[in-house]
Computed example of a mutant assay.
Amino acid sequence: MKKHIISILLLLSSIYLFADESLFHKANKEYEKGNYETAIDIYKELIKMDNISSELYYNLGNSYYKIENWAESIWCYEKSLKIKYDNKTIENLNIAKSKIKNRINPLPKTFYKKWWDKVINLLHIKKWQIITILSLWLTVSFNIVTNLKRKKSKKYLFIVLYSICIILIIISQQSYNNFIKKEAIIFSSSLPVNSEPTKNINNKKLFNLSLGTKVEVIKTKKDWIYIKLNDGRKGWIKENDVKRLN
């Protein structure tokens, strides 16, 4: 009886996966035909079914870009990058960002910071974690074997392996910090950023943000969020004026 139940469950899961794959190909076909609105509806249906992938968000971003919905396309590309870092997605994201009026220029980075960011973005967080765990296992195993055989000549190799592990742990931690960073995309045109989370007379408008701008969410207070821009400026905006990335 149990075997029959397992067989039925496997069959149903196979049918479900096949249906998802079929829908994804259908959406891609609609995109190729230029039916971008139809493709968007199908991609969104797949997201509701929890069939989420970097490719799905990437294609959805392309569809929104074609109908000139810059904010949605930017949001989708950013979601895709949260799942998998990809140069093509970065390229399309930058093209979509170029459509934003009054873009925020980030603070200049040092050569070291640029190089470090490139290293962090070489792999997704999960891959960095796997490599780090394997390196730790290799280093510990090597140390145990070396101690058992009393081979002091291998001491320097152990130091090298240990140093690599430390570097990988730092990279994995930074990758994790980037992954869990709370971010959002502005979905309101010319959004005022305020000094306080209130509408009273003491509240001052600090500056405006354009549609499609990415912000970091520092904290929340009722229906307000305190945000930080990549140029260092901070302020309060309404929660319903953004779409969160995580």
Results as ranks from 00 to 15, higher is better:
Pro108Leu: 09
Arg103Val: 07
Asn102Ala: 08
Ala96Gly: 04
Ile104Leu: 09
Thr110Glu: 12
Lys101Arg: 13
Lys99Gln: 11
Leu107Ser: 15
Ile83Leu: 15
Ile104Pro: 03
Ile90Phe: 08
Ile74Pro: 01
Ile100Asn: 05
Ile74Lys: 01
Ala71Gly: 01
Lys99Gly: 00
Asn102Trp: 02
Ile90Asn: 09
Lys101Ala: 10
Lys101Ile: 13
Lys109Ala: 10
Leu107Val: 12
Lys79Gly: 02
Leu81Phe: 09
Tyr85Met: 06
Lys99Ile: 00
Tyr85Thr: 11
Cys76Thr: 04
Asn87Asp: 12
Ser80Phe: 09
Ala96Gln: 02
Leu107Asn: 15
Lys84Cys: 04
Thr110Asp: 13
Lys88Met: 06
Ile83Pro: 03
Leu81Arg: 10
Asn92Gln: 10
Asn105Ser: 14
Trp70Phe: 09
Thr89Asn: 12
Tyr85Arg: 11
Ile95Pro: 01
Ser73Phe: 04
Ile83Met: 14
Asn69Phe: 02
Phe111Ser: 15
Leu81His: 10
Lys82His: 11
Ile90Thr: 03
Asp86Ile: 03
Tyr77Thr: 09
Asn69Tyr: 04
Ser80Ile: 08
Lys79Asp: 00
Ser73Arg: 03
Lys88Phe: 07
Trp70Val: 11
Asp86Ala: 06
Lys101Tyr: 11
Ile74Ala: 01
Pro108Ser: 11
Ile95Lys: 15
Trp75Ser: 09
Cys76Arg: 04
Arg103Gly: 13
Lys88Arg: 12
Thr110Trp: 07
Lys99His: 12
Asn94Tyr: 08
Tyr77His: 15
Ala96Asp: 01
Lys82Leu: 13
Glu68His: 12
Ile90Glu: 07
Trp70Asp: 12
Lys79Met: 14
Ser98Thr: 03
Leu93Gln: 06
Cys76Asn: 14
Lys88His: 11
Leu93Lys: 08
Asn105Ala: 11
Asn102Tyr: 11
Lys109Pro: 03
Glu78Asp: 11
Lys88Ile: 12
Asn94Ile: 00
Asp86Trp: 02
Pro108Arg: 09
Thr89Ala: 15
Leu107Thr: 15
Cys76Met: 01
Asn94Cys: 01
Ala96Val: 03
Glu78Thr: 04
Glu68Asn: 14
Lys88Gly: 00
Tyr85Val: 09
Ile95Tyr: 13
